[in-house]
Design a protein around this nucleic acid. Sequence first.
DNA 1: TTGCATGCATACAGCCTGTATGTTTATGGA
DNA 2: TCCATAAACATACAGGCTGTATGCATGCAA
Lengths: 192, 192
Amino acid sequence: MQEKSTRTPNADRRAMMRKKLMDAARSLFVEKGFAATSTPEIVKSAQVTRGALYHHFEDKEDLFRAVVVAEAKELRQAIEVATKGTIDDPLGTGSKGYFEAMSIQGRAQLLLIDGPAVLGVQEMDQIDAGGGRAALRTGLITANPDLSDEGLEAVTKVLSAGYDRAALAIAQGEAAKPYEQAMAALVRATIS
Amino acid sequence: MQEKSTRTPNADRRAMMRKKLMDAARSLFVEKGFAATSTPEIVKSAQVTRGALYHHFEDKEDLFRAVVVAEAKELRQAIEVATKGTIDDPLGTGSKGYFEAMSIQGRAQLLLIDGPAVLGVQEMDQIDAGGGRAALRTGLITANPDLSDEGLEAVTKVLSAGYDRAALAIAQGEAAKPYEQAMAALVRATIS
DNA sequence: TTGCATGCATACAGCCTGTATGTTTATGGA
DNA sequence: TCCATAAACATACAGGCTGTATGCATGCAA
């Protein structure tokens, strides 16, 4: 009479189930895209039932959102760690950190392609808040405090877009170096 | 031996039906996105039946592809027209033409967000071939023939990504000028 | 211990997609 | 002109997916 000795407190249980679903979902979303991934597939991969999924998430999109938010958070933290305590060339360091963090399998697809399409550009902007773009902006300002405040936001956004496209190209198998150099040159030109 | 039928069954009729479906589809895709648009909605809006849709297009994705390809073609032609016969500052002219062409309602969403998500980054790259990016590259080379051939492709891509993000931001209601200036500055820095 | 809330599984209704099948219309040869 | 045929389009159907409703079990608090 082996009682259920695995009496996991509800809070842990909840976190574990969410993680299990999010991991399975992430994997499938990356592999086949959001639209082509069905909830039956996800729960089968996670070895639970759709009841669990819809208990923990509002709907399929909400699960996707959770995956993307977690991904954005990891990216943000990776950049933070990389740039933490760097005194000289924070832009170069941050750039390196960004490319490295974005080389994680599926991350570019999730954050740059499916995210905007499924959640919308506006919401993805929110989710990204404080991510690479913010670091880039402070880096630019630090390197050249004279940068006009007026256009700074726009410059930051388009440069950040360059970084994103570079990361995506690299994720698709293109060589990294030309892109790293291209972005470095653009940033250098911007702050001088 | 049944030889190849050379008959041309009502070509005009065919073109008109395709256009009617593509127009209705474009409108709904822009309004609600690809995934949230159903084929019953599309054909209702076009005042035909799903039979017509599936007669002219393989599936919903194929219809979307047709819409996107047409959109990309219009963009390309608009840029061509704008830059045609410009002697000085072809980059500035092309830039202006690009932004103007990208201000068409829904175009940025279709080409920059839904396109890559639905058709994939690779295929969108094909579809865009000869579009703004090609014009940008030749413009860069013309302005400064010394640009290293090695990294030119990468530079072109990240700059092009900047243009795209700028166009998207403008399409979302942000002011155009800061973005136009930011891109002009980046391009200037690149060719000098 | 008891009653309730939470966690999860099962069942169901509605919609959507793609295909198969039927009907009309136009075309080009006889 | 008329007919055979392929294209154009409409209708019907099968399977799958989403989200919700419902039911049972388990942890928790009183």
